[in-house]
C-alpha cells in the first residue's frame, strides 16, 4: 500500500510509459482501422491496458470489473453486432460534408490541447497526491462496499432501475413482430409457377470437373459465371471466386499439353517405325 502514496515507483513509471504508448496506439487504431472488427479488437486491447492502470492506481475492484465487464461482455457484444451487421457495412469514403474530416481532426487536436493545457495549469505537483494507502487499509472491496451501501445507496438502487429499463428497451427495440403469416412451401411453389421465371430449384455452385466449393459460381455453357448458383450473402460480400477465366486458361493449357504429348508421341512413333523398317531391311 505504500506504493500507492504520492510518488510512484520506477516500476510503475516504466509500466506507465510502455503500456500508455500501447494504449494510445490502440486508441488511434480504433479510429483509423477501416474494418469494424479490427477497431473492436484494438479497443479491447486499450481497455485491458486501462484495467492494468486501474490496478496500478489501487482500484483493484474496478480493474477486475473492467476486464470482466468491458472486455469480457461489452466488447464481445460489439463483436457480435459487428458480425451481425457489419458484414456488408463498409465505411463509405464519400464525404457528405466537404472537408468535414479535416475540420473534425482539427477540432479534436484543439480540444486535446485545451484539455492538456488545463491539466498543466492546475498545480498538481507530486505532493498533491495523497494516495490510497489509508482508504484501502481495510481492503479495496470492503471500502467500496461500505460507501456504496451507505452514502451512495440511493444511486445504487436507481442503477437497478436503469438496468431493468435498458433490458426492456433492448428487447422492445430488437423484437420484430411478424405482421404477416409466413408463406408455406406450397404457396412459394405456386408463386414461382405463376411468375414463371425460374421453376426448378436454383442451380448448384461449383465447376464439377475441378472445383466444388460453394463460393465458386457455376459456369454457363458459354463460360460465363452464373450468379444464381452462389449464396446471396456471399454475393453481397463480394466473396465469389470466379474461375471462368481460369477454366478457359486451364483448357487452353490442357490442349497445348495434349498437343505436345501427341506430337511427341507421333515423333516417337515415326522414329520407332523407321527403326522397325531399318531392322526389317537388315
Amino acid at each position: 500500500m505504500s506504493a500507492l502514496a504520492a510518488a510512484t515507483s520506477t516500476g510503475e513509471a516504466v509500466q506507465f510509459w510502455v503500456l500508455g504508448t500501447v494504449a494510445v496506439v490502440g486508441a488511434l487504431c480504433t479510429i483509423l482501422m477501416k474494418k469494424a472488427v479490427h477497431s473492436a479488437l484494438c479497443l479491447a486491447a486499450t481497455m485491458i491496458i486501462l484495467a492494468v492502470f486501474y490496478l496500478a492506481n489501487g482500484a483493484y475492484f474496478l480493474g477486475v470489473v473492467q476486464i470482466v465487464v468491458y472486455t469480457g461482455a461489452i466488447m464481445m457484444l460489439f463483436l457480435f453486432v459487428v458480425m451481425l451487421v457489419g458484414v456488408t457495412a463498409a465505411d463509405s469514403l464519400k464525404e457528405t460534408l466537404k472537408g468535414q474530416r479535416w475540420l473534425a481532426a482539427l477540432c479534436g487536436i484543439g480540444f486535446g490541447v485545451l484539455l492538456v493545457a488545463g491539466i498543466g495549469h492546475a498545480s498538481l505537483g507530486p505532493g498533491s497526491f495523497i494516495g490510497l494507502g489509508e482508504a484501502n487499509a481495510a481492503g479495496n472491496v470492503d471500502g467500496l462496499a461500505a460507501l456504496i451501501f451507505t452514502k451512495y445507496v440511493f444511486a445504487f438502487e436507481i442503477t437497478g432501475a436503469l438496468l431493468i429499463t435498458a433490458v426492456v428497451g433492448a428487447m422492445v427495440l430488437t423484437h420484430r413482430e411478424r405482421t404477416e403469416r409466413a408463406r408455406t412451401q406450397r404457396e412459394l411453389a405456386e408463386q414461382r409457377v405463376r411468375e414463371g421465371k425460374h421453376l426448378p430449384p436454383l442451380p448448384a455452385p461449383g465447376v464439377y470437373a475441378r472445383h466444388n466449393a460453394v463460393d465458386i459460381a457455376g459456369l454457363l455453357p458459354d463460360g460465363t459465371p452464373s450468379e444464381l448458383t452462389v449464396n446471396k450473402t456471399l454475393r453481397a460480400r463480394g466473396q465469389i471466386r470466379d474461375v471462368s477465366r481460369e477454366a478457359l486458361n486451364d483448357l487452353k493449357a490442357l490442349e497445348r499439353r495434349s498437343e505436345e504429348r501427341l506430337g511427341r508421341d507421333r515423333d516417337a512413333l515415326d522414329r520407332d517405325g523407321r527403326r522397325d523398317g531399318q531392322e526389317a531391311q537388315r
Partner: peptide, 25 residues
C-alpha cells in the same frame, strides 16, 4: 513519475475518442 501523467493519458484518450466520433461514419 508524477501520477498526474494518468490525467494526461486520460485527456489524450478522450480526445482521440471525440475525434473518432466526429470522423467515422
Amino acid at each position: 513519475m508524477n501520477p498526474v501523467n494518468y490525467l494526461y493519458l486520460a485527456a489524450l484518450l478522450f480526445t482521440i475518442g471525440a475525434a473518432g466520433v466526429l470522423i467515422r461514419r
